[in-house]
Design a protein around this nucleic acid. Structure first.
Lengths: 102, 102
DNA sequence: ACAATTGTACGATTCTATCCGTACTATCAA
DNA sequence: TTGATAGTACGGATAGAATCGTACAATTGT
């Protein structure tokens, strides 16, 4: 597994917005925000290899953290890092999605 | 000019994030947020026709409003609509950008 | 040792974005 | 009416994103 995670200082807002600007990834991130998940929790609409691609995008943008453990990979939101660099962004995005459909 | 603007209810978060997830467009929107602009204020790094493309993306995502007047097109942020649908999002994005470089 | 599970890596394909130049339209000013 | 200005539209080039299938690696349970 290619496990490169950017440091907090290396997070870039356009990259984060781009990563979240995809319906599949946005939905995945919302789900992860409710608690740690493993990859296979999301293989429904698209194939395994497609989800691997989306996890990579989210990881490289610094949105999620991947923690391999045995056969599975636990994923969590990098909430503290995102809040430090982009205060209010995540809550605005999660709150926004409650307001209306998309 | 193709002047289609989505209604407030038609705004979609992934489209907005995608539109803002581009350095040129993000910089343009930050500039527009400080006051109304015309297209040619931004033709520096890229060509006129490229900026036309970026304005279209921002307009169709519902981020900006274009108002033709004579020979020029005034552009403004759709701040009220964005705030109504995605409260706190714009301020988080503008605030984020003050925190660090990108 | 073997099979099942979980996920990655890679190559191919298709679709979309970015970007430019050129041609064009509309407005304004002389 | 002629020319300058501000911008769009279109076609084409290049690059990147999304998707899949197949093949592979690592771990776990039998």
């Amino acid at each position: 597994m290619n496990d490169h995670h950017p440091t907090r200082d290396d997070l870039r807002l356009p990259d984060v917005l781009l990563a979240l600007g995809n319906p599949i990834r946005l939905a995945a991130v919302k789900q992860i925000a409710t608690g740690e998940c493993i990859c296979s929790d999301f293989v429904t609409d698209v194939s395994k290899s497609t989800m691997t691609h989306h996890w990579r995008v989210l990881r490289e943008a610094g949105v999620i953290q991947q923690r391999p453990e045995g056969r599975v990979i636990y994923m969590s939101l990098r909430q503290d890092d995102l809040e430090a660099r982009f205060p209010g962004l995540l809550s605005a995005i999660f709150n926004a999605d409650q307001v209306a459909s998309g």
